[in-house]
Design a protein around this nucleic acid. Structure first.
Lengths: 341, 341
DNA sequence: ATTAAAACTTATCGCGCGTAAAAATTTTGT
DNA sequence: ACAAAATTTTTACGCGCGATAAGTTTTAAT
């Protein structure tokens, strides 16, 4: 700790016995200066805890080191987790990530992009709301700022997308369910929040037909991101109405499944894969809480790690090369067998 | 949309037929200019979508309009929810909030505060990690930046704290559990992540003694923020070892309870408050997922809304007046009766 | 030791805006 | 209509740092 407070880079350069441009170079890239001077700066840094003013920095740099990360709903542990993962990778790559949540609101999503613009980010990792997104606003933004989409694709905007191979998800878990018991009915939202749901439904239908079974789809009314509540309410209704024609239910995602399990409990239906159980329930995503449902949820795990790694790598590559193109990078899911199915 | 792109405030002032300082005044406070000129500016704003450069603004302003919000663990829906709530209130008050997560890591918490310093925030709302927090780092930061603590207190730093009246929580739910069945055992972590746990334990003991019951505390080994896993693993161990002396378990928080419910399920124990159930389980917090456990979790709800409102109000008041003092503002909990107890 | 390359210094400009003081203009009250 | 008050314009400076160019020193290579 120094007695004199360092106000700016000029003063800091003075106490470290160097010129300001050299110190400036160091902060932009520590390896761009001679090792001996780097050591001198870092020694001075220990003594005087100085940090360049981030506003002054970003005002002048052609390219900031900022990266914006936008997810549709941070209160969902799935997005909290993947957001954290992506954030960490950006930090490791020497960037300054900031995480934003659209809170399920298309207007807020557009507003975040607008205010992101003034941050002059090097790049943006965007998990769009999906169906309800303001495509025009997103398109306009992406023309100016290198952007990689993840989790949910927006075809036709010429953007790189990184996510899960949803049809493969459905194939895999339908195969498993048919192999181990009755073929599954599919439980989903009537107006799903994002397009992945459509691919999962289609994957389910294809997989069922390939195995010679009649697809059976049950749809839940309801809008928004309160998936558990929708799953509980509509699941209960569909159960009462006898809409499920087999004893096995594949939910479009884990949060819906969690709500559906709640509905089963309320109706006194024992869930599981053993003889005494009345119904089998499976989900998709491997939500952080799926391990702790009663019974623990059988599901198809998204490859969080691969998706976040690939999303960041692709963004940095686009930033460096300046070449963007519409291509989708998809990762397979992994079957997590627990007790619910 | 204009044909000419506005680059800076100078140009924008030109197209709106005003001088730059007047426009500058407008952006600092739209009411500081005459209504007629305000209208002119806002008309021009419609045409030319210009935004002041955020870096240039903050470089010169004595006080930014930034507010930092730091929570210990954003992947926990509880903190995601309260973070969102606080964020919205700051926005409504005309500030620019940014949410950060310490990810359960004291070093990261200190690092966030350090980097927050360079954002020159008007104020900071901090939910500290608690026990493991680097008190020295926090104290140093709070001397320079107006800060209000929430969720978890750090006594002795002269800061305003807004949170729950934890002893009251325990009293209330112990009363209910004793009234409706056997007195509860208390299940908690041996080395809890934050000091609220200690107050809840103490509240439990006091409440039990007041009713003439022998307190019974069962502690779970384990560190970190994987509460569900700790609750499941250690809960199962304690159940097997017969450490619970009554048929009722009050968990220190809902996440622990969710894990404990999972342990009960694994052991084939039916949880609930009716005759056929083997055990009753209750939590504290009213975690967003507690509604959807099987059975739904009886718990004591934190007053999210009151806490976040009060936290923001107090911060803004401190910012304006410049007077800070060590005082605690506590809110009572509300009993949420569901089926688990 | 000689020389070229690499690293550093000095000097200067500009980024976009806040801020302040003085002068010019408009609005308000009577 | 006229003075006082409120607002706006003009002018000017500074914030902290990036960027660049020209000159000087250090390092590495032959």
């Amino acid at each position: 700790m120094a007695v004199t407070k360092i106000k700016n880079m000029e003063e800091f350069a003075a106490v470290s016995g160097l010129s300001r441009p050299t110190v400036s170079k160091y902060f932009n890239d520590p390896n761009s200066v001679r090792p001996s001077t780097r050591a001198r700066i870092e020694a001075a840094l220990e003594e005087h805890d100085y940090r360049p003013n981030i506003y002054a920095i970003n005002q002048n740099r052609r390219l900031t080191k900022n990266i914006g990360i936008v997810v549709p709903y941070l209160a969902d542990p799935f997005f909290a987790e993947i957001g954290r993962n992506v954030e960490q990778r950006c930090l490791d790559a020497g960037f300054h990530p900031t995480v934003y949540s659209s809170h399920g609101d298309p207007e807020l999503e557009a507003e975040i992009l607008e205010s992101l613009r003034s941050l002059k980010p090097t790049g943006v990792l965007l998990a769009p709301l999906g169906r309800s997104s303001d495509r025009a606003a997103i398109e306009k933004f992406c023309k100016d700022v290198p952007t990689v989409l993840f989790d949910s694709a927006l075809p036709g905007l010429g953007l790189t997308f990184v996510g899960s191979d949803n049809p493969q998800f459905a194939r895999m878990i339908v195969d498993y369910l048919c192999r181990s018991g009755q073929p599954p009915c599919f439980f989903e939202m009537k107006t799903p929040a994002n397009p992945n749901a459509n691919r999962r439904r289609q994957g389910y239908i294809t997989a069922m037909e390939r195995l010679g079974h009649e697809p059976r789809i049950v749809q839940a009314e309801g809008e928004g991101w309160q998936f558990e509540e929708i799953g509980r309410k509509e699941g209960g209704r569909a159960l009462s109405a006898g809409e499920f024609t087999t004893n096995t239910v594949l939910c479009s995602n884990d949060r819906l499944a969690i709500g559906f399990l709640s509905a089963c409990y309320e109706m006194g239906l024992r869930v599981g894969r053993d003889e005494s159980a009345a119904i089998r329930v499976a989900g998709q995503d491997d939500h952080p809480f799926s391990r702790y449902t009663c019974p623990p949820l059988t599901t198809l795990a998204q490859d969080y790690d691969a998706i976040s790694r690939s999303a960041v790598e692709n963004l940095l590559s686009i930033v460096e090369s300046g070449e963007k193109s519409e291509n989708a990078i998809l990762f397979e899911g992994r079957l997590i067998m627990r007790d619910s199915a």
